[in-house]
Simulated scan of single mutants.
Amino acid sequence: MATRRETVEAILDALGGAGEVTARKMFGEYALYLRGKVVALVCDDTLFVKPTPEGRAVEPGLEEGRPYPDAKPHLVVPGEMWDEGDRLAGLLRATEAALPKPTPRRRS
């Protein structure tokens, strides 16, 4: 099942305080970017945040799950947390700060 655009729009609306968060559709699902870094995936209408020690420190109670088969475990953000924009933004900001800068893509 592919993620509905309405789901991504609801998450982006809640993340207004995080800074410039954008979404990019990929294979029927979405990647969420903060400051040019992929910080989360939205798959099957579920929000999966990249796991980092900093993110776990901000939200230690989140369970892990896989956004797609063979993926590394990610933090699963329950739907009721989507309404807590400041809390969700804090998680994504902590995750983004812990991730390395993206490597520049080579042009073919």
Score class of each variant (00 low, 15 high):
residue 26 M to G: 00
residue 13 D to S: 15
residue 87 R to H: 15
residue 106 R to H: 03
residue 54 E to N: 13
residue 20 E to L: 15
residue 68 Y to S: 10
residue 30 Y to D: 14
residue 74 H to G: 00
residue 83 D to F: 06
residue 90 G to W: 01
residue 105 R to N: 05
residue 32 L to G: 13
residue 96 E to I: 02
residue 45 D to T: 13
residue 95 T to H: 09
residue 72 K to H: 05
residue 8 V to S: 13
residue 76 V to F: 02
residue 79 G to I: 00
residue 66 R to A: 05
residue 60 P to Y: 02
residue 54 E to H: 12
residue 79 G to F: 01
residue 102 P to L: 06
residue 108 S to N: 03
residue 95 T to S: 10
residue 56 R to G: 05
residue 52 T to F: 02
residue 36 G to E: 11
residue 56 R to K: 10
residue 3 T to G: 04
residue 62 L to E: 13
residue 36 G to N: 12
residue 8 V to K: 07
residue 37 K to V: 09
residue 75 L to H: 01
residue 77 V to A: 06
residue 2 A to F: 08
residue 18 A to V: 13
residue 82 W to Q: 06
residue 81 M to R: 13
residue 50 K to Y: 05
residue 102 P to D: 11
residue 103 T to A: 09
residue 36 G to S: 12
residue 82 W to P: 13
residue 53 P to T: 11
residue 28 G to P: 09
residue 99 L to N: 05
residue 83 D to A: 09
residue 72 K to G: 08
residue 75 L to I: 04
residue 85 G to K: 13
residue 24 R to K: 07
residue 61 G to L: 11
residue 106 R to A: 05
residue 33 Y to W: 15
residue 52 T to W: 01
residue 100 P to W: 03
residue 4 R to T: 01
residue 76 V to H: 08
residue 11 I to L: 04
residue 59 E to W: 10
residue 80 E to Q: 02
residue 69 P to M: 00
